[in-house]
């Protein structure tokens, strides 16, 4: 599933990463616990989270996350968006809750980080 299709599915706004809209994403992880993100295999996944701190960007960069979606309409401060730009990490913001966001992506055949549906 392309990032542009994920944006459509989540009625999301692209915050940064216009050059990554064609990026293919097949797995999804949802967590506010960055320790869990670091402990999982997140390469190329989309990470759904309600946290908007710089640590989300650093965690995502270190773990190889493909894109971050902020749920519940959350938008990170400009310095966080800027950092994501430097790390070439696309960010999107969806008005939906974590639960609804997960459900919508699951219905589009995205799997969990371990490939389970």
């Amino acid at each position: 599933m392309k990032l542009s299709e994920i944006i459509e599915t989540l009625d999301a706004t692209l915050l940064i990463g216009e050059d990554k809209l064609d990026q293919d994403i097949t797995k999804c992880g949802a967590s506010d616990l960055m320790s869990d993100v670091l402990a999982a295999i997140c390469e190329g996944c989309i990470l759904l989270t309600g946290l908007t701190t710089v640590q989300v960007i650093r965690t995502a960069s270190v773990a190889g996350v493909g894109a971050v979606a902020f749920v519940r309409g959350k938008k990170p401060p400009p310095e966080v968006v800027e950092m994501a730009g430097i790390q070439e990490l696309p960010l999107i913001s969806s008005p939906y809750s974590m639960f609804v966001s997960c459900g919508r992506l699951h219905a589009c055949n995205l799997t969990g980080l371990n490939g389970q549906r």
């Binding site: 967590s31 506010d32 616990l33 960055m34 320790s35 869990d36 993100v37 670091l38 402990a39 989270t49 946290l51 701190t53 640590q55 989300v56 965690t59």
Partner: peptide, 9 residues
């Protein structure tokens, strides 16, 4: 609150 401290490090 920052997403750490779960004893996973």
């Amino acid at each position: 609150e920052m997403g750490f401290g779960a004893g996973m490090g």
